[in-house]
Amino acid sequence: MADPADISRRIGEFFEAEFPRSDAVLTDTTDLLRDWLVDSAGIVSTTLFLESEFGIQMRRADINAVHFQSIRSLTAYVVGRLANPRGK
């Protein structure tokens, strides 16, 4: 069973390492699209990270503002995908 707290921590570490910011603090609820990611290359690199780190397979429809809103929403997405790899 995936531990949401662990998933959240690993996603947070990824953002801190890949998109470091000295002028803002990253929390579980930081608006990633507005305040953290800078471009679509950031979305692609996050997608690659989620696929390799958690062994999930993402689909085009999963790339949306609801999932990428915050670390919390990305964690919920990963937890859901791990529980139901083929589901919608």
């Binding site: 699209l33 507005r34 800078v38 471009d39 679509s40 979305i43 503002a65 609801v66 990428f68 809103q69």
Partner: peptide, 10 residues
């Protein structure tokens, strides 16, 4: 880039 991915529903 507020509209990245079209923004979240309001």
């Amino acid at each position: 880039m507020s509209g990245l991915l079209g923004g979240a529903p309001v």
